[in-house]
Simulated assay, not measured.
Amino acid sequence: MNSLTHIEKQKLERELSMGGGYVLNFSNRSFEEFFREVVGVEIYAPPYNLNSGSKANRLRAFWQVSTDEQLRLFLKGLIEGWDIYSGRPISDSACALLDGILKRLGSNSGTSVSPREVMTICLTEETSSKLISRLLHLTSLPPQRRGYEFEIFLKELFSAYGLAPRASFRLTGEQIDGSFVMHNETYLLEAKWQNSPISAADLHTFEGKLGEKASWSRGVFVSNSGFSTDGLHAFGRGKRLICMDGFDLSEMLRMKLSFVDVMEAKVRRAAETGCPFVPVRDLFMG
């Protein structure tokens, strides 16, 4: 259960225009995608089918059963995407309400990690060594198991850095290998463990998945075998995904770097150059 108060719920109902069964200007599809990708909840699942099953009632059901962490993800997502889902900039009253609830939820949770704290998380020698051993162990597994175990490893990695990871989930006609939250932004994950470097076709496929999601969704493509030079060149520049290879992971763990610092460096270099893949060694040892 969460610590959202009755008065906070009433104020949220007013700011989100829930009187007629709606929530802001969410459509059924955008409402479903928002909760799936930002909060990690299937809002149209039976537990949220309250009374008429309208978006407003489903949100009320969410408020009844969600955890404080899920509430934080929900509120942070609203702040970031308010203009998209309401058609107007966020008002001072709504901003103050959401920010106030977030601050109170944060102060009430001894296990929460604020965005600023996430940036400073570096792994201990013990945790780093365990993850390196896990990564090396994957090479001894049968090919059929490596991809699945690689996804589990990445979820453990993101958990170690406090990034609220979610395991793989399947949408109609496609699968997403997982997601994590960094600086209030949701990153969708594509993970590949194969013998050959990733080609442009795989990159375009994942970019296509991102194109079907909310306009602010980002992607991280993690390939143990790396990315072919020709594939990166053919893929082009200015896309919404960042690439990491197996050597990036091992170097990050060996040097006990913060994953968030690594991602920030990669995002900045991608913004400066348009290239989705710059090795960790070039970013931190070049």
Rank of each mutant, 00 (worst) to 15 (best):
N28K: 10
L232P: 00
S129T: 13
Q64A: 14
T120L: 13
T111K: 13
W82M: 03
R36L: 13
I7L: 15
S114D: 10
P89H: 09
K9T: 04
G21I: 08
S86E: 08
E13M: 05
S107Y: 12
L241C: 10
F247Q: 14
S128K: 07
I121M: 03
R269I: 11
I7G: 04
L24W: 01
V220C: 08
G274C: 05
R146F: 05
F259W: 15
L123Q: 04
A61F: 12
P165S: 10
V280L: 11
L249V: 15
E156I: 04
L154F: 14
C243E: 01
Y48E: 03
A45M: 04
S250I: 15
G40E: 10
D99V: 12
G219Y: 02
A270W: 02
E126C: 05
S168Q: 12
R29G: 01
A167T: 13
F284A: 03
S199L: 11
E212P: 01
L154T: 12
L257Y: 15
L141G: 00
L71R: 05
S250R: 11
G110I: 14
R170C: 12
S223H: 02
G208V: 09
I198H: 00
P279V: 05
A234Y: 09
K11Y: 11
D261G: 14
F35Q: 01
V118H: 10
E251Q: 15
F62K: 03
K256M: 14
M18H: 02
G238Q: 05
Q144C: 07
F34Q: 00
L253N: 04
G87I: 08
L78G: 01
D248R: 02
F259A: 10
E207H: 14
A270C: 12
I242G: 00
V38F: 09
N224S: 04
R58D: 04
R281N: 05
Y22A: 08
A94N: 03
K209C: 09
I198D: 00
S196P: 00
N28L: 03
L24Y: 01
P89F: 12
P46S: 12
G246E: 09
M252R: 05
G106A: 13
L24P: 00
K213D: 01
I7P: 00
L232G: 00
V38A: 03
